[in-house]
Computed example of a mutant assay.
Amino acid sequence: MHTVWKGSISFGLVNIPVKLHTATENKDIKLRQLHKECNTPISYKKVCEGCNKEVKEEDIVKAYEYAKNKFVVLDDEELENLRKENEDKAVEIIDFVKIEEIDPIYFDRSYFLSPDTTGSKAYSLLRKTLEESGKIGVAKIIIRSKEQLAIVRVYKDSLVMETIHFPDEVRDVADVPNIPSEQIVVQKELDTALMLVDQLTTEFEPTKYTDEYRTALMELIEEKKASNTVTASDKQPVPNNVTDLMTALQASLDKTKTTKKKPTTRKRATKKTS
């Protein structure tokens, strides 16, 4: 399992060297966009709206737009120094709380935590402590240059870290339009609804829920493959930028060098034979 972060978690004087692994994966089926006329994949270019020309990666800088068309430019070195300044710190568990106190709207992504080489004993201690106390740890961590609020909890035999949104990242429900104010509910309707809920109540079994759309889409794709209802592009991308030109020139140059070397080799061979 790929390691996405390596560091340590501490609570009190206990320090645990750990590795972070992504706990979930996106299984969406990615569809490419083709040119209908020739079935060639469509590519997307970075174009400057002001100059109306394609921009190379090395000519792009990062900036924060603090007002309409007004920017503060931040160079890569400044951002890297800021990231390292915070990322090098160990993840410290700030508080212990009950998971029921955190509304699910705050949860973001899940990661498995595994102990590093010397961290097994401290890892087991934290796991047992969380199990016995019925609490979870609240911590901060920097992942991919972004500071994250996170919780550490027990999942089966593993510790899991789940990033959660900061309060100012959760939008105010008062801004949601057309939410009805409290209205009088007819008791008979409420009783019927509660009866329906009672009939549908069961234990949560994750394995019984599947992505039916993804399954149907893959079946359709496989059917088309089996019936040879497939398309292929008969056109190669036309070189249209400096990089492609340089690649072609370098290939030509290499080919020329190879051709020139061959006669020399044959000449030496003839001398040895005679």
Rank of each mutant, 00 (worst) to 15 (best):
T3E: 12
T3Q: 13
V4L: 07
K6A: 13
G7Q: 13
S8K: 11
I9D: 10
I9F: 15
G12M: 12
I16E: 08
P17Q: 12
L20V: 15
A23G: 14
E25W: 04
K27F: 05
K27Y: 02
D28P: 00
T40K: 11
S43A: 10
K46I: 11
K46Y: 11
V47Q: 10
C48E: 07
C48S: 15
E49Q: 02
E49P: 06
G50W: 01
C51E: 15
C51V: 04
N52R: 15
E57W: 12
D59Q: 07
I60D: 06
V61H: 09
A63M: 11
Y64P: 07
Y66C: 10
A67M: 06
K70F: 02
K70L: 10
V73K: 15
D75V: 05
E80P: 02
N81G: 02
N81W: 03
R83D: 06
K84N: 13
N86Y: 08
D95E: 09
D95S: 11
K98D: 13
E101V: 14
E101I: 03
E101S: 14
I102K: 03
I102Y: 02
D103N: 10
P104W: 08
I105G: 09
I105C: 05
Y106I: 00
D108C: 12
S110Q: 08
F112K: 00
L113R: 04
L113V: 15
S114E: 11
P115D: 11
D116P: 04
T117L: 12
T117K: 15
T118P: 00
S120I: 05
S124C: 02
S124F: 01
K128W: 03
S133M: 01
G134I: 12
I136N: 06
V138E: 00
K140Q: 12
I142T: 09
R144N: 14
A150C: 10
A150Y: 03
A150P: 02
I151P: 09
V154Q: 04
Y155H: 06
K156T: 08
L159N: 02
V160E: 15
V160L: 15
T163P: 12
H165W: 03
F166M: 06
E169Y: 05
V170Y: 03
V173H: 05
A174S: 10
D175K: 07
I179N: 01
S181I: 07
S181V: 09
S181M: 11
E182M: 13
E182D: 05
V186Q: 13
V186I: 09
Q187Y: 07
A193T: 12
Q199I: 12
L200Y: 06
T202W: 01
T202E: 05
T202A: 10
T207I: 02
T207L: 07
Y209C: 03
T210H: 10
Y213H: 07
A216K: 14
A216D: 04
L217Y: 04
L220Q: 13
L220H: 02
V230T: 15
V230H: 02
T231P: 00
T231R: 03
A232H: 15
K235W: 04
Q236A: 08
P239H: 03
N241Q: 11
T243F: 07
T243E: 12
D244H: 10
L245M: 14
M246C: 12
T247E: 04
Q250K: 14
K257Y: 07
T259G: 06
K260R: 13
K262V: 14
K262F: 08
T264Y: 01
T264M: 07
R266L: 05
A269H: 05
K271P: 00
T273P: 00
S274L: 04
